[in-house]
């Protein structure tokens, strides 16, 4: 028996079902549309939802970028890229602006996305109400009735207990004034990038078998109160120790030698580009 691999791995029937689901998801922003979700050659929970979307979208002319935790070279990102390239032969890139499809886990790139790009986010848990309701049949009902008092109560309890909203990543958002949605475990820092985004954003949860979407130019508001505002992670007075960037999401590192705390751009390709452009300025255009 020989290895035979179909273009973009999935059989055409599976792609059709995923494509129909994506169109529905776009038509009902923030609503989790169920889909069959095929088993992929990478493990469930490792980006199979995003991967199935990518494989159903991708064509020969696409340029693909995959990042995991902001990094192009993260092992899981490399592994996903490898699979897509093996079955499609598409061009890969690390530059955000040259990519037509960007599959990402836990980050939205720092470089603003444009309207000829599609961002595909991997989602481990698509249900924003799961934290207080375990049953799928119940959360489905709550969404249908737009009954989100539980989500508000969760934030309220945090304020009562801690004096502030204490959510980490995956802070819930309100989409198009209708559905409360899990933005996937992106940091709160990235939530505002979803609002009125130029690029289409598709979210895929393979294990939980849900696809949902934020069309371009759609209202996306992070859940918060008038007197307790939504707060992104705070990097005031901090900058990247490599490229000097401020106002971006930073990773916190401990220097091996000095035991000092260091900060570094989480978006590795963004940092690299900045480094290269400053170098260009310094040395002129000799070997650019």
């Amino acid at each position: 028996m020989l290895n035979k691999s179909h273009f973009a791995f999935l059989d055409e029937g599976s792609k059709k079902e995923i494509r129909r689901t994506i169109l529905k998801a776009v038509a009902i922003p923030g609503y989790q549309v169920p889909f069959a979700s095929r088993e992929m050659p990478i493990a469930r929970g490792w980006g199979t939802g995003g991967l199935q979307i990518t494989l159903s979208l991708i064509g020969k002319k696409d340029v693909l970028k995959v990042i995991d935790q902001g990094a192009d070279e993260s092992v899981n990102a490399v592994n996903i890229k490898k699979l897509v390239q093996l079955t499609t032969g598409v061009e890969l890139t690390e530059q955000t602006k040259t990519a037509t499809l960007i599959q990402s886990r836990h980050r939205i790139p720092e470089v603003p996305l444009t309207d000829d790009q599609i961002l595909i986010l991997q989602v481990p848990e698509p249900e924003p109400l799961r934290a207080y309701e375990a049953k799928k049949s119940v959360t489905k009902l709550l969404h249908s009735e737009q009954e989100y008092s539980g989500a508000w109560l969760m934030l309220f309890e945090q304020i009562m207990k801690y004096g502030t909203i204490s959510t980490g990543a995956d802070h819930p958002v309100y989409v198009n004034d209708r559905y409360v949605m899990a933005p996937s475990p992106i940091p709160r820092f990235d939530n505002p990038k979803m609002n009125q985004s130029e690029a289409l954003i598709l979210l895929g949860a393979g294990r939980e078998k849900k696809i949902y979407a934020i069309p371009p130019y759609t209202d996306v508001a992070s859940l918060a109160f008038d007197d307790y505002l939504f707060r992104t992670e705070d990097f005031t007075d901090k900058s990247c120790h490599l490229c000097g960037a401020t106002g971006v999401f930073l990773d916190e590192l401990i220097d091996d030698h000095t035991q000092q705390k260091l900060f570094q751009c989480n978006d590795t390709s963004f940092c690299m580009e900045r480094l290269n452009s400053t170098q260009k300025e310094e040395v002129g255009s000799i070997d650019a």
Partner: peptide, 9 residues
Amino acid sequence: LPHYVTFQS
């Protein structure tokens, strides 16, 4: 898998 963005958050 690495979870350092979520952890940082």
